[in-house]
Design a protein around this nucleic acid. Structure first.
Length: 264
DNA sequence: CTGGGGAAGGGGCCC
DNA sequence: AGGGCCCCTTCCCCA
């Protein structure tokens, strides 16, 4: 079930951008090493929970899987040389909403993540855009389109995707301009938190650990997927054969390969 | 071939 | 209104 209703997706919208082509020459964000250890530690997500209530038709999981993770003492982490994996609290709890995010530094954000806020693009004639600075309109990648009913729509000049709101378009444009650049490898990302997640591939930091096997993950979504492997009844079920899968992609593979139809 | 991990993209929600 | 964070989803790779 697509969660996007703001964008009219094109058929090939899932292709990843060519970073070398899209790399913005004026990075908006950088994450230089050595990292500020205090920032990283302070930003490790507080005890939290996962919300298993994904709204998928085939979702059969919910209360079947309720790992009993323990909250951790955050202060104790500060005394450790290496940030240790942090356990998540119960999945059945309400998500506190703070924290899958890497180590997002406490406010105020470090200067390396400062962002230049664009004032109203319309007021600026669509010339001001984060990471783009004051550029001629034709170089900003923004254009305004109107549909036959004169409803205002915003088109991306890079890929021609159409958005119903300027904010959505602005966010999308970032996927082309990639203003957040890794100070280690130079890879660029559309948003600071994507960069932060990437940085963890360099640091090896894995703030999310499984309460069942103590395996740690850098990404909470990956932990969530991993937790499925501990469940006998997986989250995604084939409606034809009732076989369950830990990931939707596996279910899709199963269905595309031709479900035999018999229960397993 | 299947299942799982790693990494990343992107829209929505909340402050 | 914008930014930060959340969640879902997808792709790639490997065992």
């Amino acid at each position: 079930m697509p969660r996007s209703f703001l964008v009219r997706k094109s058929a090939c919208s899932r292709r990843r951008p060519n970073y070398s082509e899209l790399h913005d020459s004026s990075p908006e964000f950088t994450f230089q090493q050595p990292y500020d250890q205090a920032h990283l530690l302070a930003a490790i997500p507080p005890p939290e929970v996962l919300n298993p209530t994904a709204s998928l038709p085939t979702l059969i999981w919910d209360s079947l899987l309720a790992p009993q993770a323990q909250p951790i003492g955050w202060a104790s982490l500060l005394s450790q040389e290496i940030p240790k994996a942090v356990e998540l609290t119960s999945l059945s709890d309400e998500d506190s909403g703070k924290g899958s995010q890497p180590p997002s530094p406490p406010s105020p954000a470090p200067s390396s993540f400062s962002s230049t806020s664009a004032s109203s693009l319309e007021a600026e004639g669509y010339t001001a855009f984060p990471g783009l600075g004051q550029l001629p309109k034709q170089l900003t990648g923004l254009s305004v389109a109107k549909d036959p009913q004169s409803r205002k729509a915003f088109n991306c000049k890079y890929c021609n995707k159409e958005y119903i709101s300027l904010g959505a378009l602005k966010m999308h444009i970032r996927s082309h301009t990639l203003p957040c650049v890794c100070g280690t490898c130079g890879k660029a990302f559309s948003r600071p938190w994507l960069l932060q997640g990437h940085v963890r591939t360099h640091t090896g930091e894995k703030p999310f650990s499984c309460s069942h096997c103590s395996r740690a993950f850098a990404d909470r979504s990956n932990l969530r997927a991993h937790l499925q492997t501990h469940s006998d009844v997986k989250k995604y079920q084939c409606k034809t054969c009732s076989r369950t899968f830990s990931r939707m992609s596996l279910l899709h593979k199963h269905q595309e390969s031709g479900c035999s139809g018999g229960p397993r």
